[in-house]
Amino acid sequence: MPDPRRGPNRLGAMSEITREQVEHLAGLARIALTPDEIEKLTGELGHIVDSIAKVQEVAGQDVPATSHPIPLSNVFRDDVVGETLTQEQALAGAPEHDGSRFKVSAILGEEQ
C-alpha cells in the first residue's frame, strides 16, 4: 500500500495527514470508516488541510479570537421551572427502550 504521506498534493507540498491519523480521528468521532474511506479521506484531508492551513499566516499574537459574531455577555435564565417532556415524548424517537429508559447495548470498559 502506498504511503499516503508521500502523495504530493495540489500545492506541491507534502500532506501532513497520515492514514493512522484518520483512523484515530474516526475513532474519536465514532465513525466506523471502511478501509477504502480511510484511504480516500487521507488524501482529501491532506489537500483540504494544506489549502486551509494559510489561516496561520495572518493569525498574529496581537489578534484576538472571535468566537461569537455579535458580542454579548451575561445571558441568563431565571431559575424557574418550565414545561418538561412527558416520558412518552422522550422515548418516542428512541431506537430501543424498556418503557421508561433508553436501552443501549453493553458498554465496553469502565464507568466514566
Binding site: 422522550a90 424498556d98 421508561s100 429508559r101 433508553f102 436501552k103 443501549v104 447495548s105 453493553a106 458498554i107 470498559g109 469502565e110 464507568e111
Partner: peptide, 12 residues
C-alpha cells in the same frame, strides 16, 4: 456492574 452486563438503561 458494567463488566459482564448484557445491556444498559439510561435515565436522563
Amino acid at each position: 456492574r458494567i463488566q459482564g452486563a448484557e445491556y444498559s438503561l439510561v435515565d436522563y
